[in-house]
Amino acid sequence: MPTLEHNGSTFEVDEDGFLLKGDDFNEDWVDYVKGVEGIGEMTDEHQKVIDALQEYYKKNGIAPMVRILSKTTGFPLKRIYELFPSGPGKGACKMAGLPKPTGCV
């Protein structure tokens, strides 16, 4: 599997650039994904989405449905797409260190 380095941290990722080991998640990973996803400035709103994704994943072993993510964060889906242009399943989950979404995607 490919590995990448950013700001001195090393990460193992899958072919689509998702973190293979959730434990590797750190600030450098967030900074790296910010670059590849074309996100200008990290805001508290980005952080709120990441925290909600991680908390739900720890509890349930899957990412939340976007409707649940919207309710937890208080952000409508449109706002989540503004924060993470490639969407909650791809950009936001990637930044939060969750695995690539499964199924027909």
Partner: peptide, 10 residues
Amino acid sequence: QNSREPMSEP
């Protein structure tokens, strides 16, 4: 129903 809709495109 394909899961993609309820999950990410309701």
